[in-house]
Design a protein around this nucleic acid. Structure first.
Lengths: 206, 206
DNA sequence: GTCTATAGCTGGATAGAC
DNA sequence: GTCTATCCAGCTATAGAC
């Protein structure tokens, strides 16, 4: 399974094969089929196991978060670590493959679900009582953050300075959210007042 | 070239081949090599031409934008249209392939550059004089938006309701930016005052 | 469990007929 | 310019030796 993850990182979803995986693992190609049946099943199993492991790695830190500010700090650390250890690259490649391959779609969705569920839970706790609760649905925001991390990871692969600039800008904008968060009831009234004239009426049809 | 784009959408970067492209175009496989030399060269040429075309399609509307609010509205329309016509899917797949394939990296970066340059230019104009200019670097924000669109596109492929929720939340948060934008000098002083105690000192090392 | 060997297929790329 | 035919590499998957 480690070989599978390394092969995805090294060759991308387009270049992954039983042979490249076996080469990364230092074993024979036939073992992929003996142990996992098909290549897709191996990728699915490896992805699931790796994600369960990574999410568990942060569970205590997620639980300790008490404010939006602390969550933003944890988010920055998490992004940095998961980018460095290649987990984000693996998820991005699997997600690209999942667009078209039904056998990859379900396990990839399940893996991302592990992340979004965790983030959503913390957001729900942290946003309770904040004026931002008027604006940000925890479920939607958790998914937006996950999608954003993956988009940034892919962008980083072709333009690292640009990705750094993008990340720096997002951190600056997060300051804005933090400010509003800590303003409390005053900001809540201001936000609510402004929303009447500006807010779009619910999710748009597609 | 249309066949190449359709093949990417239909089979993903992992499933694209001279044969699948030729099948989509209704011609013989050997023509790919006669006209473009290699498959990668065809993908690069098709991506470049398609992106130039799509960006040109919005040039007048970008130029007409006079406020952040108008830009947000145009952004929503653009996202909706480019998602529907499959341009975003093509860019996402090429970007995934570009992580690992050097022959795809340069043309993909060039294509995204066409988008980010356009967006950055409008942002620079629209943010001038806004309190948000203290927070958001136009170049970084343009890249963050582009990366975000691609991340959302990929997420959409495995969880459409989740992607809709994410998009709805981002639109709600954009309202916050719009509010700050229109508050003008008052918000500028508030933001500037808060930044001193909160802002991180520049981009972080990696 | 791990290997070799192999069947059967799809891939990129070229040669040459038309 | 477009096709057929073909080469050879790499692919999934299985059979069978060890």
């Amino acid at each position: 399974m480690d070989g599978a993850l390394q092969a995805i990182r090294q060759h991308g979803i387009a270049g992954v094969s039983a042979r490249t995986v076996a080469a990364c693992a230092g074993v024979n190609q036939a073992l992929v089929f003996y142990h996992f049946g098909t290549l897709d099943d191996l990728l699915a199993t490896a992805c699931q196991a790796a994600t369960v492991d990574r999410v568990a790695h942060y569970r205590d830190r997620f639980a300790a978060v008490r404010s939006l500010r602390e969550l933003l700090e944890l988010g920055r650390d998490l992004h940095e670590q998961e980018r460095r250890n290649g987990s984000l690259a693996v998820l991005a490649q699997l997600l690209a493959g999942a667009q078209v391959d039904d056998r990859l779609a379900a396990p990839t969705a399940a893996a991302l679900r592990l992340w979004t569920d965790e983030i959503e839970q913390v957001l729900r706790r942290v946003l309770a009582g904040s004026p931002l609760a008027e604006l940000a649905d925890p479920a939607g925001l958790a998914r937006a953050v996950t999608a954003g991390f993956i988009g940034l990871e892919l962008y980083d692969g072709i333009d690292r300075p640009g990705a750094d600039a993008a990340l720096a800008t997002l951190e600056q904008l997060a300051v804005l959210a933090d400010v509003v968060d800590e303003l409390g009831p005053i900001a809540r009234r201001a936000v609510r007042g402004r929303l009447g004239s500006r807010r779009r009426s619910g999710p748009r049809s597609r």
